[in-house]
Each structure stands twice: as C-alpha cells, then as structure tokens.
Amino acid sequence: MPTDMTVNGEARTSARDPLTPLIDVLRDEFHLTGAKPVCREGFCGACTVLVDGEPTVSCLTPVAMAGDCDVVTIEGLSSCGLTDIQSRLEQGDAVQCGMCFPGMVMTLSHFLAHTPQPNRDEVRAALTGNICRCTGYERIVEAALAVAGGRAEGRR
C-alpha cells in the first residue's frame, strides 16, 4: 500500500510497508540522510522532522501516519541558506560531532517560531527530547537565546 506525502515541497510516494518508521523511508528510500536514527525510542530527538509543521520523532512515526502530510526535513529547512538558529550555532562554535544538530535545529526552529522571547529555562525545557552527547548544551541554549535577542533588537 503506497503512501503519498509531500516532502520538502515535492510530492513523494513511499512503497514501503505502512508500519515502516518514517525515518527509514526518508533516509533509505528518499536518500534524505540529514535526520539520524540514533535511539529509535523517541528520547534523543536526532530524527526530528516537521510533520504538518510539528516537530515529530520520525523513528516512532509509521510512514502511513505521515500519509498526505507535509514533511519537512533538515534538508528542506536549509534549502535557502542558513536559518537564524543555524547561523547562531555556527557563529557560536557550538557544533562538535554534529549528529544531533539536524534534530536540534528542527526542534529549535519550531520552538523559536512559537516562543519569540524565551528565557533560558524555557529553551532547556524545549530541548528535553534532544540529547547532545558532545557539547554540554550551553552553546546551543546560548544560540537560541541569541536568536531571540537578535529579534528583540531588530524591533527596536
């Protein structure tokens, strides 16, 4: 039973079994390897993609549940250059091994879009489901706060 969906603005059809995790369809069938299958239990967040605008752990999402949905991966998010959060992470020398960042960026993009002026604790809470094993998080939190701070300055 094929599953139709929109991926990064393009109509795509998966031929995989409907229970196949979305992450495997994206990576193995559509060759979008940005999202990473790390824990496959919804705890690490490295496989986060947007499904109809909501950050979704694609490891726990059967592809059939993404049927007729609009899926955006890190590749789609980055198709017009770096977003604000990506720029701040780059400038802040935040990246180390990098495996968690595709998911971090998806989560933070959505969070910052819905929480324009977060405080530090809110950023941390938003990252509860995005593990980073390298950086100790602080530069990631700083980058998110810098995006918000930059917006506040822009309004002045």
Partner: peptide, 14 residues
Amino acid sequence: RRRDARDKLTGRTR
C-alpha cells in the same frame, strides 16, 4: 571557526 559546522547544521555531512 570550524569549517564542518555548516554541513553538520544543514544535514549534509555524510
């Protein structure tokens, strides 16, 4: 600054 950050942030690193 490290040159691999951009690809890692955009999911391009293989």
